[in-house]
Write a protein that binds this DNA or RNA. Sequence first.
DNA 1: ATCCTTACCGGTAACGTTACCGGTACGATT
DNA 2: AATCGTACCGGTAACGTTACCGGTAAGGAT
Lengths: 347, 347
Amino acid sequence: MRNKKRAVTIQDVAKAAGVSVSTVSRVLNEKVDVAQDTQERILDVIKQLGYTSNLAARSMRGRHSHLIGLIIPDIGFPYSIEIMKGVNQAIAQSDFGLMVYTTGDIQKNATASLEQHYVSLLNNSITDGVIIVAPIAQDFYSDGPIVSVDPHKMKPNFPSVHANNYEGARQAIKYLIELGHTRIGFIAGRPELESAERRLRGYRDTLVEFGLPLDESLIVQGDFTQKIAVGCAHQLLTMENRPTAIFAGNDQSAIGVYEAAEELGFDIPGDLSVVGFDNIPEAGYLNLTTIDQFLTDMGRVATEMLIQLINQKPLETLTYRMQTELIIRGSCSPIFQEALHETKSAL
Amino acid sequence: MRNKKRAVTIQDVAKAAGVSVSTVSRVLNEKVDVAQDTQERILDVIKQLGYTSNLAARSMRGRHSHLIGLIIPDIGFPYSIEIMKGVNQAIAQSDFGLMVYTTGDIQKNATASLEQHYVSLLNNSITDGVIIVAPIAQDFYSDGPIVSVDPHKMKPNFPSVHANNYEGARQAIKYLIELGHTRIGFIAGRPELESAERRLRGYRDTLVEFGLPLDESLIVQGDFTQKIAVGCAHQLLTMENRPTAIFAGNDQSAIGVYEAAEELGFDIPGDLSVVGFDNIPEAGYLNLTTIDQFLTDMGRVATEMLIQLINQKPLETLTYRMQTELIIRGSCSPIFQEALHETKSAL
DNA sequence: ATCCTTACCGGTAACGTTACCGGTACGATT
DNA sequence: AATCGTACCGGTAACGTTACCGGTAAGGAT
């Protein structure tokens, strides 16, 4: 943009069409109060000159920029990718453009003030609204509307979309119990994440509901990454009286369980049943039974909600709760009392 | 952005700090010609007021916006995602932001004029440079630098990054021939894509090089999608004297071959060997032998090149050619002369 | 004939920022 | 003492666009 050969502006168009800039601007926007032939003439000139309106000037002066901002953790994560796909679907069907900002590694960098910085940066200037994925902050100062996906707090002070994490965990545990499992390990997510906390609660409550004992040593602290989950699975699988099933906090953790199981020579689902959470594409390839939280839909819904807000239409619900669904694949098998006994006495 | 409560501007900061806007602007940018304590005072005020500079105004008036545009086909494609990951890596290590524009379905919408429109839209206004993935157009009118990934023409009139498609195809075919395969099917990509054309050429030339006959009926026209590839694979596998191996134009096509093989009761690699191209993550899960073209690296390199251009530094090469690598997994098996004979006489 | 409405169009002032051209103060040099 | 150089800072004009307020002409109503 340094040595830019002056781009064609609205002025050039006006001059070439023999009208004022105001008229050209009207044609570009409202399309009212302009004579038919004038409009056509201007449109011709625009095409001929290859004019495209300057987004910066437009969003600076005008009321709207037709741009939506997406603030998302590292897009290396399948989780982020799935949500982004949904956002993109909704964007494609609208007349909005998309600006993507990455807050970097989900682990470290993300702080409430960095989030606030991006929100201000975008909504102060260049976007009509912002979607923020997995925000830590409870509230934002923002000049434009904001919708979050999977926020940390259940009731944030802004519209949000999140999965029914509690019910999802319940579906998973119920399924495993019905298969006959009584010792079910859990690899938790980062405790400061609302979703992780709700899944843990679902795990606990469901065990109690079915009259099973709560063994705290079956709960190990993961962080939603594959790497850490390998260690967690190791811990669970080498303990005395090991669990016959593991409910992983998310699919990436489940993949870590696969890795650990392979190292230790455990067969899935023969020796060990595994259930994940998220239903990322990888789960399908690994034949992993998991809880679908419809990440793509969450991204799409959030975007649609944001567009509603931008257009100053009322929202049906402030917090949209996505239903979860148990996707049964091949990573679990029923357990029989005798087999269980064998394992028990063997250890 | 409609009822925006006036955001805090550089003027407010200037007033609060008791200096002029010019001085604040200087602090914000060059950081020269400002006294130490003045600078600190201004920085304090900025933090206190929660000021973030208006991107629109900044990029309109200033020389640079510190924004890079990415024009990419539908991000639903693993191909696009992999490239985007690389772009994001490079962005994360720079002080640039990222704007993503999707040209929609790779199949239909993409036209040279739509591409040109996006390039103008971004580079005229809001970005310092643009990366365009798999462009059709041979050249662009642009006010800022532009780098392409995987362009249609081998020698486009702008810097580009592309894989060594010809050599990649050669590696695949050579590998299959060395395993003893003589009848190798090929599912071609869309012929207007340079990459598809080069892979086809590599397929042909390598067969000839090793003295094998060229059977045109072994070449079927795909379009790089899984869906179409299923039909292609069906055609190949049900023909008289069917191929013992299939080289798919890309990994998604290879996945289609898996699907067709399953339907027809063929075992991979027992009855059929398959090689893909791209090495998307799915290939790992499917244990698919494939050609890695390092898509993520391509995205990263392209971004680095663009940043070089934006900073007006010279480029080492105008067209960066990424080497390919054969990734041997479990989708191929050697074929023995007798087994081949059996197959032949059986049909 | 005069007034009023309607359809169309133009002029101008912002929007928030940076580049550019100055200007002041003060110590150093002649 | 006069001059100069340096460090610091302010004023102003753009950048390209749209919102707002007018203004003109034509044609119908009075």
